[in-house]
């Protein structure tokens, strides 16, 4: 059995450089070509389907109830204020999606994985 080397090799440097370059390129590409900027709305997904579309510039607080959406772990509150959106209240083991806070950049999803719930600012479909 060949044990993996513990000291860095020049191929590690190549791999590091390649990954950094590729990540930088991806950063540019996604920000330039993969951000919606026309007719933005807030789309709400449940179980991988859009269940609601809300105006981005109408301040509102929306509650999605477990009674209506059984795969939610509990009720989820989505808040939209001044072109920004966040998950205000949710129940999940680690509360990742509420910890993410306000999102104002279009094309940046807020994913509540255990709740099968996602909110994203994107173009009107």
């Amino acid at each position: 059995m060949n044990k993996i080397p513990l000291k860095k090799t020049r191929f590690d440097i190549y791999a590091f450089s390649f990954l950094m370059l590729f990540a930088s390129l991806l950063l540019v590409i996604t920000n330039v070509f993969n951000r919606p900027n026309n007719d933005l709305v807030v789309n709400v997904y449940y179980e991988f389907n859009i269940i609601d579309t809300h105006e981005l510039y109408i301040n509102q607080s929306l509650v999605y109830r477990k009674d209506d959406y059984p795969r939610l772990l509990d009720d989820i509150t989505v808040e939209i204020t001044n072109g920004k959106v966040r998950i205000d209240e949710e129940t999940s083991p680690l509360n990742y999606c509420s910890l993410q806070g306000w999102v104002e950049q279009s094309g940046t999803p807020i994913i509540c994985a255990p709740n099968y719930f996602m909110v994203i600012i994107e173009e009107r479909l």
């Binding site: 993996i4 080397p5 513990l6 860095k8 090799t9 191929f11 590690d12 791999a15 990954l19």
Partner: peptide
């Protein structure tokens, strides 16, 4: 060719 660093990365 990769060490533990490259593999981990």
């Amino acid at each position: 060719r990769l060490s533990i660093f490259g593999l981990s990365m």
